[in-house]
């Protein structure tokens, strides 16, 4: 089973303030820590588990600047066999379509049984690239997958997550693309040996010319006009003071609302 896994590097903004930069079209990147997109870790783990079960190869691929080498190397250390970085100004100044098209051009030049992506990137929240890439590759896809079971090397039985705890169960023939939802497995940490081996694994860097891509094809279809911070409809009434004062007020509030 030969598997491609698409990895995106994203800033971790869950606990930090996010500010818009002077262009008004991007956020201030200084002091942000970058990591592998949350769902992509689960996609990679899904691929590594399938490789352990059925053999084959896992190739990780990312569109970005040189900085994404960090997450690609981490994936190699966890057990991926090969990494590809797609770097070109043409790729970086586009939108979801641009990235999907670049991934399509790179992946379609290879033999594969399965392509995995995350179900959503935590920065843009688009949920687009996976099924877009599948359409370009002309293979079936399933989004928000929470279980993958391979049958006879030719089909996959997958669970897709719907609303409110409901699942859609379907069978899809391979090659196929699945976008993986968080929680499907427990992503591993790299081992010391894995980290040592990573540096000797194949690592390709490709641009649009090397991929023979017509630059016109990469033109973005959408564009961010402006970013802004939501007006804080600070509905909350803030309780302040020392931890002790806060706790006293909270305890009284709880008592008032629900009794004790």
């Amino acid at each position: 089973m030969d598997i491609f896994v698409c990895l995106k590097m994203v800033p971790d903004t869950s606990e930090t303030e996010v500010r818009v930069d002077s262009t008004g079209k991007d956020i201030l990147k200084v002091r942000l820590l970058y990591t592998t997109n949350e769902a992509d870790n689960y996609a990679l783990e899904t691929a590594l588990l399938l490789k352990e079960q059925f053999g084959g190869t896992v190739t990780v691929i990312s569109v970005g600047t040189q900085s994404v080498d960090e997450i690609l190397k981490m994936a190699l250390a966890k057990g991926a066999d090969k990494a590809i970085r797609l770097t070109d100004d043409l790729f970086l100044n586009g939108d979801a379509w641009t990235v999907a098209y670049a991934l399509y051009q790179a992946i379609s030049k290879n033999k594969f049984d399965l392509v995995l992506t995350g179900c959503i990137a935590t920065d843009d929240g688009n949920s687009q690239i996976g099924p877009m890439l599948a359409a370009l590759l002309q293979i079936p896809s399933a989004a928000y997958v929470t279980k993958v079971e391979i049958i006879n090397n030719t089909k996959a039985k997958v669970n897709r997550e719907l609303e409110g705890g409901l699942l859609e169960i379907k069978e899809i023939s391979l090659p196929a693309l699945f976008t993986i939802q968080t929680g499907i497995n427990t992503p591993r940490y790299p081992s010391i040996i894995g980290i040592k081996r990573a540096s000797s694994k194949p690592f390709e860097v490709l641009n649009a010319t090397q991929l023979n891509i017509d630059p016109n094809k990469l033109a973005a279809l959408t564009e961010i006009r402006q970013l802004y911070q939501p007006k804080v409809e600070a509905k909350a009434q803030f309780i302040t003071g020392s931890d002790d004062e806060i706790s006293t007020k909270l305890a009284e509030l709880i008592k008032e609302k629900v009794g004790l």
């Binding site: 929240g125 279809l221 959408t222 970013l227 802004y228 911070q229």
Partner: peptide
């Protein structure tokens, strides 16, 4: 639409 887990709002146009 929201970005960054709701910390930013984006105005996006279709070209």
């Amino acid at each position: 639409r929201q970005m960054y887990g709701g910390k930013i709002i984006a105005e996006v146009i279709s070209k």
